[in-house]
Design a binder for these strands. Structure first.
Length: 310
RNA sequence: GCUGAGGUAGCCAAGGUGGUCACGGCGGAGGUCUGAAAAACCCCAGAUGUCAGUUCGACUCUGACCCUCAGCA
């Protein structure tokens, strides 16, 4: 019988610290479930827990993604630097990388400890068995992105009235979600394959390990004020650590705000600052605010899908 | 002290011959989520500086007072 531990929760609650402690206790290895720390070159802005001297140990490759680990106080930490900022790294990509790493860790007789607050990614790993793989069609998305919401609504309604019918008010007004639905339909989605999400955890099935026991621990801030204060400290620390320089270097290397990796809280604000749109104080305030809002959205997600004991 | 401008929600802020007034944005609360998710959306709450006067009716008009800003002293 094998075990897996998941440590998730709001940003700035000390998840990694806890995970590291558990890894030492249980002889485990860490797997980052973080949609942003998966990008190389964003070390300071995303607050990766690596010391300047430590280096990446590449191990294998899944498609475009490179799997490897950093060592953190002797504990391997996987799924950092999986992609470069030009690349897409979707929840699907995460779960395929993660399953591969989990199996590898288990094979070596260690405990996988998944740590991170990207709930959408975590949910994809734990609950979904997509029976029909329909990836992103960026060419299509590009054309659809020029259309208005009502145009997109009309389009989906024509192409797939049943699916449109299923959508709630929030999704019907959400261009990205409408585009995804159109994309699915145009690539031959069959509705039976797109039923409601499986409420049961399906990771065991995915890994083909019926005995796998999964423990989930969630971390959250006691109050919104506490969240804001922890986030403020953290952002200020990252600024002092050279976050602005880091983003400037990325831009100098030819990366742009349009690159998937730079669509990251902190990057956006710093980019606006570097372009002269905001002064430094405004940039810091906006960064903190964006991070606070994110933490709130995390809590909503968490309460719904991971209400387990903190 | 004088002159001018102004006081509308936690902040920024629009408006109208007096008619249930009260546009927005930010922030706050809650929510949505099947390959962009640190994304993109939905939704709720909340306001006319104070006191009088005119009027059937004042956020709007009048007066006084309080406060803020600019200029002059």
């Amino acid at each position: 019988m094998s075990h897996i531990l998941i440590i998730t929760g709001q940003t700035a609650t000390g998840k990694t610290k806890l995970a590291l402690q558990k890894a030492k206790e249980l002889d485990g290895e860490l797997i980052s479930c973080d949609s942003r720390q998966a990008y190389s070159g964003l070390d300071i802005v995303t607050g990766k827990d690596i010391t300047p001297g430590s280096r990446f140990h590449p191990v294998s490759q899944i498609g475009e993604y490179r799997l490897g680990f950093y060592e953190l106080q002797g504990v391997p930490l996987w799924l950092y630097d999986v992609a470069n900022p030009h690349q897409e790294y979707s929840s699907y990509d995460f779960q395929s990388c993660a399953t591969s790493v989990i199996l590898d860790i288990l094979k070596r007789g260690k405990i996988p400890i998944i740590v991170g607050g990207s709930f959408f990614y975590l949910r994809h790993l734990l609950y979904e068995i997509p029976s029909q793989h329909i990836g992103a069609d960026w060419k299509l998305r590009e054309t659809l992105n020029t259309q208005t919401v009502s145009e997109l609504q009309e389009k989906l309604q024509t192409l797939n009235p049943d699916l449109y019918q299923e959508l709630n008010n929030s999704d019907r007004n959400n261009p990205q979600r409408l585009i995804r639905k159109i994309e699915l339909t145009m690539h031959g989605l069959s509705l039976e394959n797109y039923t409601r999400m499986n409420p049961e955890c399906t990771l065991q099935k995915k890994l083909n390990l019926p005995d796998l026991s999964i423990n989930i621990k969630t971390c959250s801030h006691a109050t919104p004020e506490e969240a804001r204060s922890a986030i403020t400290d953290r952002v200020e620390k990252r600024i002092r650590a050279g976050a602005v320089q880091e983003v400037q270097d990325l831009l100098a290397k030819g990366y742009t705000a349009e690159d998937p990796g730079l669509k990251t809280i902190g990057c956006k604000e710093i980019t606006a600052f570097l372009r002269g749109e905001w002064d430094e104080k405004t940039m810091v305030q906006k960064w903190i605010q964006a991070e606070v809002s994110y933490a709130k959205r995390q809590l909503t997600f968490m309460n719904k899908y991971f209400p387990s004991i903190g």
